Computed example of a mutant assay.
Amino acid sequence: MLLTDSFLDYLLYERNYAEGTVKYYRSDILELQKFGEEVLGDLTPSDVDADLVREWIASLMDNGCASNTINRKLSSIQAYFKYLLKKGEVAVDPLQKITRPKKKKPLPVFLREGEMDKLLDDIDFGEGFEGCRDHLIIEMFYATGIRLSELIDLDDKGVDFSASLIKVTGKRNKQRLIPFDEELERSMMDYVNVRNEAVPDRSDAFFVRKNGKRLDRSIVTSLVKRNLSKVVTVKKRSPHVLRHTFATAMLNNGADLGSIKEFLGHESLATTEIYTHTTFEELKKVYNQAHPRA
């Protein structure tokens, strides 16, 4: 495949692309050229067809190239052939019928049970109302899988101690009931007693600040990140990590996917199935560490 500088000059001077970006285009085109010459020998742009591009994609994947990187390379090649089509140097675009690799969804980040035990049982959250409140927030995320927005919007009337149920409003205003156990009930009642004494004048919110107003996202996100940092070093330390931790712990301890779906308030079981991949990755890790032939 004869590579001219006209395409790169077009990107640089007519499209005003940065020099660094143009270097990527040049590298990607040369990479395909080299691969094509190894397969076909001498190569012209017209020799590049969909089959050759598919073989190139397969070789990139075999060499561990990530989907995002492959898709970027394909974008470079497609831009190049669109330019050649416009100039009349080729008759067809070889990427027209190419299905691009799907981006691999990252697995959810979660804490292990031992890390959660250490956080809830050994870490000092501080004395008084705020320490009691912050500990309960961490515990409630872990014990119920509740969303951040659901926790913030929870009112006193949404907690039914007699039935051991929390009523939350999830996405698209869909309401659901989340059961809680005796341990969480004790923690919640302890918090309510401390809160009522420390903050007599307050809103209807279950979780409040010292001034009696409802908590906001930034406060909860900050306290979760601060306390998770005491037991883990993972970069992601958000309330959603605790939601993932809840789901993974439930699955690892025998809960079926359908039940976890209802707990989390997922619309589709496919959304919940991501946790099966998480636990499978853990099993692989254990296997690779423990099996003598791994």
Rank of each mutant, 00 (worst) to 15 (best):
E19I: 06
A58W: 09
R243A: 06
A58F: 12
K97L: 12
T4H: 11
K157T: 14
T144Q: 09
F246H: 02
K284M: 10
G265C: 02
L136M: 12
A205I: 05
R202C: 08
G88W: 08
N227A: 09
L269C: 05
A247H: 05
V159T: 08
N252G: 07
K104L: 10
L43E: 00
N68F: 07
D216C: 14
R214I: 08
K174I: 07
N173Q: 10
D153L: 07
T21Q: 06
L8A: 02
L228M: 12
M188F: 11
I138E: 04
L165T: 04
M1S: 10
F246W: 03
L11P: 00
L60W: 00
V109T: 15
P108H: 07
L30A: 13
A294R: 09
F280W: 07
S222H: 12
R133N: 05
S149T: 13
M61C: 10
K86V: 09
L8Y: 09
V90L: 11
E115T: 04
K23R: 14
V53Y: 01
I146M: 12
K285Q: 15
T278W: 01
V109P: 00
M61Q: 15
S6L: 02
S27C: 11
V232N: 01
A247V: 09
V199W: 11
V220G: 02
L84I: 02
L269G: 05
S149G: 13
D5I: 07
F125E: 00
F141C: 07
E183I: 06
P101C: 09
K118P: 00
G20T: 09
